[in-house]
């Protein structure tokens, strides 16, 4: 039976990077997942509502949880910001009775009440934990043969007591390995680089401190290049924007060229599954992956999935 999820596309991806969404829907089809579209609002982001009015941020997030709960569906999001907001809201609505009462009182204005019966997952969690590496591997018709640097995005896994409590011991924080392990089954080579788990600098970009934002990115790019990576795989639209546009800004500002293509994780998987370039939107990127495409190596005896 197909796995069913309430699909939470977020707001950046559907508006600015719809090809991430089409790539996600395409690989979901190949992997026999059903994505259900529901009338969600924006999550809302941790970078504004949460900083301004915590309780209202929680209430708006909980309203989205209610929409999925009504359909008895767990949420699948494609954005690191959304998963952070929705998981934190879910955590608080379940674990903090005082706050839950307060937020449910606010939700009454919208005729809603959250019971706390659903889970929230990032696409990566679903691929890694629910679908499994083996099932992904089975659907690949190409080996990537590329060196891939993973960038997970801070909010995917921090704070770990909310994002991945099951992996947490009192003295340890948690860092994910899912993109690297997925890269391996796609026939690519994951590379490790310094500052892998640190911020990309995106939140400082708009109106806060652009110099610091690009300085942080520049260091990451430097270490990615030093590790001989040929492309960057991300799980977050904001991080994507930082790597994609940031490289242009860094060329202007520091006269340094990196030319590293950045792919969203569903595009990378789609590539190995042989999904057409149009659906994956590879042409939409500034730093093209075209030069790397001849490296794809066909696997023998594999059939291309029909979409």
């Amino acid at each position: 039976m197909a796995l069913r999820y309430a699909f939470f596309p977020g707001c950046v991806i559907p508006a600015k990077y719809p090809h991430f969404e089409s790539a996600t829907r395409a690989i979901a089809k190949v992997l026999d997942m059903e994505l259900v579209d529901l009338p969600f609002s924006c999550c809302p982001p941790t970078s504004n509502m949460k900083l301004v009015h915590y309780d209202s941020w929680l209430a708006l997030a909980a309203r989205n949880l209610c929409v999925a709960e009504e359909q008895e569906l767990d949420i699948l999001t494609t954005c690191t910001g959304c998963v952070s907001t929705l998981k934190e809201a879910n955590y608080i609505m379940r674990q903090k009775p005082n706050r839950r009462r307060k937020i449910n009182r606010i939700l009454e204005k919208a005729g809603r009440h959250y019971e706390g019966t659903i889970e929230v997952f990032h696409l990566l969690d679903v691929l890694y934990d629910h679908i499994g590496l083996e099932a992904i591997e089975e659907k690949c018709i190409y080996d990537l043969n590329m060196k891939v640097a993973s960038h997970y995005g801070c909010h995917l896994f921090r704070p770990s007591y909310i994002m991945y409590p099951e992996f947490l011991s009192p003295s340890h924080s948690y860092v994910p390995t899912s993109i690297d392990e997925i890269t391996e089954v796609l026939g690519g080579e994951p590379v490790k680089y310094m500052r892998r788990f640190l911020c990309c600098g995106y939140p400082l970009g708009a109106n806060v401190d652009e110099d610091a934002s690009y300085e942080i990115l520049r260091e990451k790019l430097y270490y990615i290049k030093a590790a001989h990576a040929e492309l960057i795989a991300v799980a977050c639209a904001s991080c994507f924007e930082q790597f994609e546009l940031g490289q242009v800004m860094i060329k202007k500002k520091y006269k340094e060229t990196y030319k590293l293509p950045t792919l969203y994780i569903s595009q990378l998987i789609g590539l190995a599954m042989g999904i057409d370039n149009e659906t994956l939107g590879l042409k939409e990127h500034i730093h093209k992956i075209k030069k790397l495409l001849p490296r794809l190596q066909e696997r023998t005896g594999r059939m291309r999935a029909t979409l």
Partner: peptide, 13 residues
């Protein structure tokens, strides 16, 4: 205070 990017690196450590 608005320079914090909320990356949680400090909190984790």
């Amino acid at each position: 205070i608005w320079l914090c990017s909320s990356c949680y690196a400090c909190q984790e450590r």
